[in-house]
């Protein structure tokens, strides 16, 4: 038995041998998204999340769907350089913004320093959370560079962040790794942070 993408997204798959109820045609909207420097012109229902637009309509499956409720961080992408959960926002809301996914960071023959560091430090086992971890870490290092505080920051009046391991852990708490590769993830991020600082 096969299902259309529309059926999957609506969650109206047949259950227990019953045929799916006829859904009213909710209508499609023209939606233009700029992703990794490319423009995509799509026809989407308003209820399609940014995550589903990336994966199911554009074919950028690097971004992962974990919990689909903002709890795991696997779907983290950058919108105008800031990390967000792509599962909790509608694609149509992001016209005119610059979206960056893991595919926009590096390629197998030209890895982003964070991707290389995750390999070097065993920052993953199954790899499912990794694209979200790396997009999150990239934005996190930018936040640190601009002096953003976290709950682990003791002096809020100081604009400079001392990126301790405690700081890295607090700042990465929106990305869950069910394999428990946290030690390697912290090592990877610290490594890239120190590389950048040394430059």
């Amino acid at each position: 038995m096969s299902f259309s993408i529309e059926q999957i997204l609506r969650g109206d798959l047949p259950r227990g041998g019953q045929s799916p109820p006829a859904a009213a045609d909710p209508g499609l909207l023209p939606v233009s998204l700029r992703i990794n420097g490319h423009d995509y012109h799509l026809q989407l229902e308003s209820r399609v999340s940014l995550l589903d637009a990336l994966r199911e309509f554009i074919g950028l499956t690097g971004t992962k769907k974990g919990c689909n409720q903002g709890a795991c961080g696997a779907c983290t992408v950058l919108v105008d350089g800031e990390r967000v959960n792509s599962c909790l926002t509608f694609a149509v809301m992001h016209e005119g913004q610059e979206i960056t996914t893991i595919e926009g960071l590096g390629q197998p023959d030209n890895l982003h320093p964070l991707q290389a560091a995750f390999i070097e430090h065993d920052g993953f086992q199954c790899g499912y959370c990794t694209p979200g971890q790396i997009c999150s870490a990239l934005a996190m290092l930018k936040e640190v560079a601009q002096g953003d505080a976290s709950l682990a920051t003791s002096d809020l009046t100081k604009a400079e962040v001392d990126l301790t391991d405690e700081e890295i852990r607090e700042r990465m708490s929106g990305n869950i790794c069910r394999c428990g590769a946290y030690l390697g993830i912290v090592d990877s991020i610290r490594d890239v942070y120190e590389q950048q600082k040394g430059q």
Binding site: G70, V79, L88, L151, L156, S173
Partner: peptide, 25 residues
């Protein structure tokens, strides 16, 4: 900066909530 300097309780409350990704949205 003014929130951090003048109302640290607010900065801490916000930073203790949710995750960085959620706070960005």
């Amino acid at each position: 900066l003014l929130v951090r300097q003048r109302y640290p309780v607010l900065t801490q409350a916000i930073l203790s909530a949710a995750s960085p990704q959620l706070r960005n949205l």
